[in-house]
Measured scan of single mutants.
Amino acid sequence: MGFKLLSKLLVYLTASIMAIASPLAFSVDSSGEYPTVSEIPVGEVRLYQIADGVWSHIATQSFDGAVYPSNGLIVRDGDELLLIDTAWGAKNTAALLAEIEKQIGLPVTRAVSTHFHDDRVGGVDVLRAAGVATYASPSTRRLAEVEGNEIPTHSLEGLSSSGDAVRFGPVELFYPGAAHSTDNLIVYVPSASVLYGGCAIYELSRTSAGNVADADLAEWPTSIERIQQHYPEAQFVIPGHGLPGGLDLLKHTTNVVKAHTNRSVVE
């Protein structure tokens, strides 16, 4: 069995187990497998329904001669939608809004960016022009300005110390501490036991640490421990890039980060 097929099978099995364990909360999309990078042309966006009122959005972007996937989250909030992270750029984010209108038909009224990198804030200006209120932590807003990236308009308070959590509509926002970046936030959907790890969490097929220019490698494993301790009931975990899975993604990420750190020390 090929690795790609095995990865998709694991996603399907995880979703099936969740649907059985929580039949009222989960209505997993039966329309197909989780979209992969090879299936999404740059400039297009796919939506994948995880649970009743919960979707991931998947886009792709060219970077350094390669094409990478990027995940975000959409959560229903009454007759409105909360968006977590842009679709990595203005063109993708405009396509995301169009796809949401086509498939869901509810307005996106608020959006949260989970850290300051372009795959999370690139497209904020498109959201703002569409009347979406954009939010991020003060740290993310400051770092985005320093980096020359787009800056969300509103500040999220109460997320300055490791372990801080605040309720934001249908989700809980959690600051686990520094990891992929010093400002990275985690998003949890309690009604569906869905954990969105953003770039602080890796997919299972990833074996290298990737972009760690703004990471705190020493603190990252401790931050992941905080996530595990705060959300032990999480059933569906979405990484910032690639295929979702279960809580095993947290341990896998820790292993990859520690291996990278150990290699760096040896070198």
Rank of each mutant, 00 (worst) to 15 (best):
L96A: 01
T222F: 13
P138S: 09
E39W: 08
T114N: 00
A111G: 07
S27N: 09
I201F: 08
L185M: 06
D119R: 02
G32P: 11
G177D: 05
H260T: 12
E33T: 09
R167K: 12
S16G: 14
V126L: 10
E44H: 11
A94S: 14
V37Q: 15
A19M: 15
G122C: 07
D214A: 08
S161D: 13
G169F: 06
H241M: 01
V257M: 07
L156H: 05
A215M: 06
A111N: 05
T254V: 12
C199A: 02
R206E: 15
Q229S: 13
S22A: 12
D214K: 07
F116R: 03
L217K: 05
V166T: 09
L247W: 15
F116T: 00
D29R: 11
S62G: 12
K8Y: 15
K251H: 12
W88G: 02
L96E: 00
S193H: 13
W55L: 02
Y231H: 05
R167Q: 13
N71P: 02
A259K: 13
L81R: 02
V146G: 14
S22F: 09
S162N: 11
P69Y: 13
E150V: 04
E33C: 07
V124A: 08
S208T: 14
R226G: 05
V187Q: 00
A98H: 14
V256C: 03
A215R: 06
A144N: 03
T93W: 00
P232S: 11
V124E: 04
D183T: 00
G169D: 05
G210S: 05
S113P: 06
E80A: 09
L81A: 06
E225F: 11
E44N: 13
S181A: 07
D118Q: 09
W88C: 00
L9F: 10
V166I: 12
R142V: 13
W55R: 03
T36V: 11
V257K: 01
R167N: 12
A209S: 10
A136M: 03
L249Q: 02
E203R: 03
G169E: 04
K258L: 11
A133F: 11
S7G: 08
G242K: 05
T134W: 01
W220I: 01
R142G: 11
L173I: 14
H57G: 02
S22G: 11
D119A: 05
D119W: 01
L82Y: 06
V67N: 15
V67A: 15
P69K: 07
V11W: 08
T254W: 15
V132F: 01
A209W: 07
L250P: 06
V112C: 04
W88D: 00
R142W: 09
H154M: 12
G246M: 04
R226V: 07
S223G: 04
P232G: 12
W220L: 03
D216T: 08
G240Y: 04
D119I: 01
S162P: 15
N262K: 11
Y175I: 00
D164Q: 12
Y231N: 08
I224N: 05
L156K: 04
T182P: 13
S27F: 11
S205Q: 07
S205E: 14
C199Q: 02
A51M: 07
T86D: 00
A87K: 00
L173N: 04
L195V: 05
V112H: 05
P35I: 07
V265T: 11
S208F: 10
G148E: 07
D248E: 14
G122I: 04
S191I: 09
V212R: 07
T153Y: 12
F116K: 01
S155I: 13
H180D: 01
D248F: 07
N184C: 03
M1S: 05
Y202L: 15
L5M: 15
I20M: 12
E145S: 14
V166N: 05
A15H: 15
F236R: 10
A133I: 13
S56I: 15
A15N: 14
A25Q: 15
L127S: 00
Y12S: 10
L83A: 02
S160Q: 13
V166S: 07
A165F: 13
V194S: 02
I74N: 05
G245T: 03
E145N: 11
L5K: 15
L127G: 01
N211D: 08
A179D: 02
G131V: 05
D79C: 05
N211Q: 12
P107E: 09
I40H: 06
S137H: 09
D85Q: 00
P232Q: 09
P152D: 00
S7Y: 14
E172M: 05
P170Q: 06
Q103L: 14
L127E: 00
K8A: 14
D52V: 11
K258S: 14
L204K: 14
A133Q: 14
L47S: 02
T261R: 12
A165E: 12
D29V: 10
T114A: 02
V37K: 11
S205K: 10
H117L: 00
V146T: 14
S161M: 14
S113W: 04
A213E: 10
L24A: 11
E99F: 08
V256P: 00
V237A: 04
G169W: 04
T254I: 13
K102I: 13
R76M: 10
G122V: 07
P244M: 08
A144R: 09
T93V: 00
T153D: 10
F174R: 01
A165R: 13
P190L: 07
A15P: 14
L6N: 15
V67Y: 15
L97K: 00
R46A: 09
V146F: 14
G240N: 03
G122E: 10
L250F: 08
A111Q: 08
L127I: 03
V171A: 06
E80Q: 11
T254A: 14
Y34C: 07
T36H: 10
H180F: 00
G197L: 03
V189G: 01
W220G: 02
L106Y: 09
S137Q: 08
E157R: 11
P170H: 01
Y135R: 00
P23D: 11
S38Y: 12
T207Q: 14
A94G: 11
I58P: 03
A165M: 14
K4I: 10
T182L: 14
F168P: 02
H154V: 08
S193Q: 14
I20S: 09
L106Q: 09
Y175M: 04
G2I: 07
V108Q: 00
V108P: 09
N92G: 08
A133C: 06
Y48D: 07
L159A: 01
V194T: 06
G148D: 07
T36P: 12
G122P: 05
A178E: 08
G122W: 07
G240D: 06
Q49M: 12
A165N: 12
S223F: 05
F116N: 03
A130E: 10
T114W: 00
L156P: 06
I100N: 01
G65K: 10
F174V: 02
Q235D: 13
L143G: 04
M18E: 15
P221D: 07
E33L: 09
A234R: 02
I58E: 06
G158A: 08
H117M: 00
T14P: 14
V54H: 00
Q103G: 11
L5W: 14
K91T: 15
A133P: 14
H154L: 11
W55I: 00
H252P: 01
G246Y: 04
A98W: 14
S223V: 08
T36D: 14
S30D: 10
A192N: 06
G210I: 04
G32M: 08
H115S: 00
Y231S: 02
Y12P: 06
I151Y: 04
V237I: 08
G32S: 10
S16M: 05
I17F: 10
V37W: 13
T254H: 15
E145Y: 14
F168R: 02
D125T: 09
V121H: 03
R206M: 15
A90H: 11
H154T: 10
Y202H: 08
I74E: 02
A165S: 14
S30A: 14
L204P: 05
R76G: 07
R141Y: 04
S139I: 13
T222M: 12
T86M: 00
V112Q: 03
G198T: 06
A21F: 13
V146R: 14
D183Q: 02
A19T: 15
H57D: 04
V124F: 05
R76W: 05
S7D: 07
T182F: 15
A178M: 07
L82E: 03
V42K: 08
M18R: 11
V121W: 00
P41G: 13
D183E: 04
L73Y: 01
K91P: 13
P41D: 11
Q61C: 04
V121S: 01
E147S: 14
R110V: 09
V171W: 02
S31L: 10
R206T: 15
T93A: 01
G131Y: 03
F63N: 08
P138F: 07
L73A: 04
A178I: 07
A87L: 03
I84A: 01
G2V: 08
G169K: 02
